[in-house]
């Protein structure tokens, strides 16, 4: 099987997109920590769970934003570049 330039570029794009998505490791850990903290808090104070869930989702959203940057980069590598 011969590999020409275009194939090489597309292979590299795929590889690059995959590498870009490594960036979701951090947010993954972060979201885990956020949820852990929220669950601990809810276990300690079940009455406040509504407020805690709201703030938890907010925190997850901020952490997830970083993963989304990785996704955007991956998508740009795959489709735009």
């Amino acid at each position: 099987m011969q590999i020409n330039g275009a194939d090489f570029i597309s292979a590299m794009k795929t590889l690059g997109a995959g590498l870009a998505m490594i960036g979701v490791i951090g947010p993954g850990i972060g979201i885990g920590l956020i949820v852990q903290g929220a669950l601990t808090a809810m276990g300690r104070n079940p009455d406040a769970s509504g407020q805690i869930i709201t703030n938890m989702i907010l925190g997850i959203a901020f952490a997830e934003a970083v993963a989304i940057y990785a996704l955007v980069v991956a998508l740009i590598i795959l489709f735009v570049l």
Partner: peptide, 13 residues
Amino acid sequence: ISRIISFGFRLFG
């Protein structure tokens, strides 16, 4: 501004 990106791409992703 980054909120636009995170709003949009979170949902899309």
